[in-house]
C-alpha cells in the first residue's frame, strides 16, 4: 500500500513545553484517519508540521512520497483549518474569489485564473450546494455557509490528501450530516485520503476507518476494529467510551 504520509521520530517543543514526543506513524492511500486527543494533546501542531507550517525540532516527514523539505505538489493537498482562524471578517472577497484562491497552487508565475478555471470553481460550488452564493461576500454568510466555502476551496483541486481541523464546529446537525456524507463519498468513490481532527472522539467511529489518538505521543493508532478489541485501550478510555466509539462504528 502506498504511503501518503510518513512521520518518523517527530518531536516538537513550544519554548520549554513539550507538545509532541517521538511520534512515528504512516497513513496509507485511501485511509480515513480520525485524529483525536484532548485539548493541548498536539493534534493541530502535528497537522501543521505535516503541512510545513511549523518546523519540527526533530523528525522526518514525507508527504506523497517526497521529503517535506523538497515537497512542491501543494495542489494535491486540501486543508480546512479551524473556522475561527479562517479570515479577517472585514475582508471584501466574494465566495468565487475565495474558492478560486484554491487553484493558484497549480499555477506558475504569473498566476492567473482563466475562464476554464471558472468552470472548475463552479463545479466545486455546485458539489457543495453553494452555487447560489457565488457572488456573495464571504463575510455576509453564516458560519455553516462559510465552512462549506472553505471546504470548496480545499476540494477545488480534487486533492489526494484532505486535512480537516475540527470541521464540524460551525455546522448545524443537518449541515453536519451532509458534510460527513460528502467526505464519505470523497473517500470511497474518489479514493481521497482524509485526516480528520476532532476532540469529539465519540463520533470518530462514525466516519473514520482508522483512529490516531494523541497525547503528546501516540496512545493508539490502528484500525477501529483493533481499537475495539484492545483491552489496553479499555484501560485508557474506560469501557463506556470505548463502547461508544465502537458502537457507532
Amino acid at each position: 500500500m502506498e504511503k501518503i504520509v510518513e512521520v518518523k521520530n517527530l518531536s516538537f517543543k513550544y519554548g520549554v513545553a513539550e507538545v509532541l514526543k517521538d511520534v512515528t506513524f504512516s497513513i496509507d492511500r485511501g485511509d480515513y484517519v480520525g485524529l483525536g486527543g484532548h485539548n493541548g494533546s498536539g493534534k493541530t501542531t502535528l497537522v501543521k508540521i505535516i503541512l510545513g507550517l511549523i518546523t519540527p525540532d526533530v523528525g522526518d516527514i514525507s508527504v506523497l512520497g517526497k521529503n517535506l523539505k523538497k515537497f512542491k505538489q501543494w495542489s494535491k493537498i486540501g486543508y480546512l483549518p479551524q473556522s475561527l482562524s479562517l479570515f479577517n471578517p472585514i475582508f471584501p472577497a466574494t465566495v468565487y474569489e475565495v474558492v478560486s484562491l484554491g487553484l493558484i497552487s497549480k499555477k506558475k508565475f504569473p498566476r492567473r485564473i482563466t475562464k476554464s478555471d471558472e468552470k472548475i470553481v463552479d463545479n466545486a460550488l455546485q458539489e457543495l450546494e453553494i452555487i447560489d452564493l457565488k457572488n456573495k461576500l464571504i463575510s455576509e454568510l453564516s458560519g455553516g455557509q462559510q465552512q462549506r466555502v472553505f471546504l470548496a476551496k480545499a476540494l477545488v483541486n480534487e486533492p489526494e490528501l484532505l486535512i480537516l481541523d475540527e470541521p464540524s464546529n460551525a455546522l448545524d446537525s443537518k449541515s453536519r450530516n451532509h458534510f460527513f456524507d460528502l467526505l464519505h463519498d470523497l473517500n470511497k468513490k474518489k479514493g481521497t485520503t482524509i485526516i480528520l481532527i476532532t476532540h469529539d472522539i465519540g463520533h470518530i467511529g462514525e466516519h473514520a476507518n482508522k483512529l490516531l489518538y494523541l497525547d503528546k505521543n501516540i496512545v493508539f493508532y490502528g484500525k477501529l476494529s483493533e481499537f475495539c478489541d484492545s483491552e489496553s485501550m479499555e484501560d485508557v478510555f474506560g469501557r463506556e467510551s470505548q463502547h461508544l466509539i465502537c458502537h457507532q462504528h
Binding site: 510545513g52 512542491k72 482562524s85 475565495v98
Partner: peptide, 11 residues
C-alpha cells in the same frame, strides 16, 4: 492578505 497560513499551504 486573505490568510497567511492558507497561502503557505498553497506553496
Amino acid at each position: 492578505t486573505f490568510n497567511e497560513e492558507q497561502a503557505n499551504v498553497t506553496g
